Simulated assay, not measured.
Amino acid sequence: MGDDDGSDVSAGLGLAPGARGCLFDLDGVLTATAKIHAQAWKKTFDTFLNAYDKRTGRTDQPFDQGADYENYVDGRTREDGIRSFLASRDIKIPDGGPEDAPGTESVYGIGEAKQWAFMSLLEEHGPQVYEGSVRYVHAARAAGLGCAVVTSSTNCKDILRVAGITDLFDATVDGHDVSAQHLRGKPAPDSYLAGAKALGIEPAYAAVFEDALSGVEAGHAGAFGTVVGVDRVGGDHAEHLKQHGATVVVKDLSELLGAANAEEKR
């Protein structure tokens, strides 16, 4: 692809000139599973806090499905999210290990409880796909750009399969890869750098699409050509995304296509 062609393609997708690949977060960008994750975290943390407070005599506020999810959990690996939230409450518990049963008072025990809660809710509601995002991925592929999913979720392949969009992506980097390759979780750029490597492109020629603050931080830290913040919640979230590294913020990826079409008509 020549420089001129790359610029034209990039402009048609609302990206910086020369883009050759797109790296999409899963939950909140491609699918509405972020809402299911938030519900699962609330159920899990509230159950933990209730038991912990009874044992220690503390009085903790319940998990805030908005602020706590956004600030401490969203976009991070499961274990990092648990450590981050517990640190915000000045709660210290053992890490434990992957063999810990759900409900064990350990980081991994809480993680297993969250996984059970998430899978139960996923079975009940299914993964809703954002149609605007799917249209954008189709447009990116039609323009010759590589597309990959980069997520901290260990449920990535199942969600893509159930949603019927597996074939849209050339590569995936998920929670299993983060663990197996010893990658640092978001806000470190490691997983997105791995996604760019899987597509065979340099970060400067790749675009990151994220709804989480930790995710846009990762895109910024990795010096990616474009960091698109996706604001699904409203309020101050758009401004927070910009503050944490997003170069452009939209409510839906279809807006990037809409902006391009509007320019063509002028």
Rank of each mutant, 00 (worst) to 15 (best):
D4H: 13
D8C: 12
D8A: 15
L15F: 09
R20M: 08
C22H: 06
C22N: 02
D25Y: 08
L26S: 02
L26C: 10
A38G: 10
A40I: 05
W41C: 11
F48A: 07
F48E: 06
D53Y: 10
G57N: 10
Q61V: 13
P62W: 08
Y69K: 02
T77D: 01
R78P: 01
E79G: 09
I82R: 06
R83F: 10
R89W: 00
I93H: 01
D100A: 12
A101F: 04
P102H: 02
G103E: 04
E112W: 05
E112D: 11
A113L: 13
A113M: 14
L122E: 12
Q128R: 13
V129T: 13
Y130G: 03
S133M: 02
A143R: 13
G146R: 10
S152K: 01
T154Q: 13
V173G: 08
H176F: 12
H182D: 12
H182F: 11
L183V: 08
P187Q: 03
P189N: 10
P189Q: 11
S191W: 07
G195D: 09
A198E: 06
I201M: 12
D211K: 06
L213A: 07
S214L: 01
G215E: 05
T226K: 02
V228D: 09
G229P: 06
R232I: 04
K242T: 14
H244E: 04
V248C: 10
V250P: 06
K251D: 15
S254G: 13
K265N: 12
